[in-house]
Nucleic acid binder design. Structure first.
Lengths: 219, 219
DNA sequence: ATAATCCAAATTGGATCCAATATTCAATAT
DNA sequence: ATATTGAATATTGGATCCAATTTGGATTAT
């Protein structure tokens, strides 16, 4: 007997569905910073009770994506320019190490996939998908590494500044520059030059940080 | 009117009390790895219902301190030697940056406090408190930095390997060596030599990693 | 005796209800 | 008119109850 099986125990609980949906809405900016998250309202939207919503919100708080006050509720977390800068510094520290570790582990299939993603990003015309394609490219390269904790840190850091990254990409030639830098990183990976890929990744992130801070209040 | 005030809204909720207690029990090793966390049992222990317990457990899972399976419950998370090594590598990357940032911001009061903690650690005789005193010393130095996200990462990373650190300290001259290295780090901080403090911190962590892995299964 | 099956107990996930707190707005006093 | 009080409403935190799933043991068939 042949069946397409799936791990039933991995089916999503209500709380994880709500968690994923809220996380996505927050990092994509559909829920804007400071906006309150009403348990009742969210529960109605997902046809569930407030219990899974509360669990989702507490997990989001643990991730730093919302801030809650007792008996007052949760709001979407925002970042000051200083905090944004720190997140980018963290990324500039961690992600180059992920790439350095990943390069020797990249299969030709993975590199082909990364090349596709890189091309898709460069030729993208819809600003709504810039962020998705950008992240997809980086995640593809990072996924070759076996540093799962580093990746957790990096994922969370990117989550926290994803809105700003998207804003930065649609800014004056943000896409054009990012596309060039992506291509350079990809080439270094294909050459197997881990140090170069690492250095370019760091410069890519530091460049994004500088360009972003210039356009932030007081920049 | 003069009153000794306190922020009522900052009073702890049941779920945060349970969270803190479970976290402490886990990182100190009172709950050992793989041990199941029964919601009902914990609720009874804290004279509360399962709701706050579930919220606490979901937060612990987000922090990586427990692992849960749907309808099966949560168990205390453990680390393979490879994972332990990765956590130490992460610490060796992040904590030197925290120290480097902190050194120029250290007041003489803070340095005095750090010196006390350093001395307390070196003269400790009760193995149960080794871990507390070790962490207290490092946290004191790190607290001078204004890199709160870096500190969050570092705190979580330390949480995950705290048990191993404690084990390592009671190993053959673990305390003696750690005491020496702490003193060297402290001296660099007092001299205002951020680069040196940073380098010594990295070496301190890498040394702990090496010594730990040697005594782990397959080391 | 062994393996498969089924049922009861244990456990978790979620819904509903109540309590505690915050917020809003009308009423009142100055 | 403005500030203060107090009640009504909204919202969150927690308790209790029910449903879904797992687990372990008894039962039965081979």
């Amino acid at each position: 007997m042949k069946l397409k099986t799936m791990d039933i125990s991995a089916t999503a609980s209500a709380s994880s569905i709500v968690f994923d949906a809220l996380r996505k809405a927050i990092i994509e900016g559909q829920l804007e910073e400071g906006e309150p998250l009403r348990q009742d309202e969210i529960a109605r939207l997902f046809n569930t009770s407030r219990i899974p919503v509360r669990e989702a919100i507490s997990r989001l708080e643990e991730q730093g994506l919302v801030k809650t006050q007792r008996y007052k509720g949760a709001v979407v977390a925002g970042l000051s320019p200083k905090e944004t800068a720190e997140i980018f510094d963290l990324r500039a520290l961690v992600e180059p190490e992920i790439i350095r570790n990943a390069v020797p582990l990249m299969s030709s299939e993975l590199l082909a996939e990364a090349r596709e993603k890189c091309a898709a990003f460069s030729s993208a015309t819809d600003p709504m998908t810039y962020g998705d394609l950008n992240r997809a490219f980086h995640e593809t390269l990072y996924s070759a590494s076996d540093l799962k904790f580093f990746q957790e840190i990096s994922d969370n850091a990117i989550d926290r500044v994803e809105r700003q990254i998207r804003a930065q990409l649609v800014m004056s030639n943000g896409m054009e520059r990012a596309g060039r830098e992506h291509f350079a990183i990809l080439e270094a990976c294909e050459k197997g030059d881990a140090d170069l890929a690492s250095r370019l990744t760091r410069e890519h992130i530091q460049g994004a940080k500088a360009s972003l801070l210039k356009h932030l209040p007081g920049g």
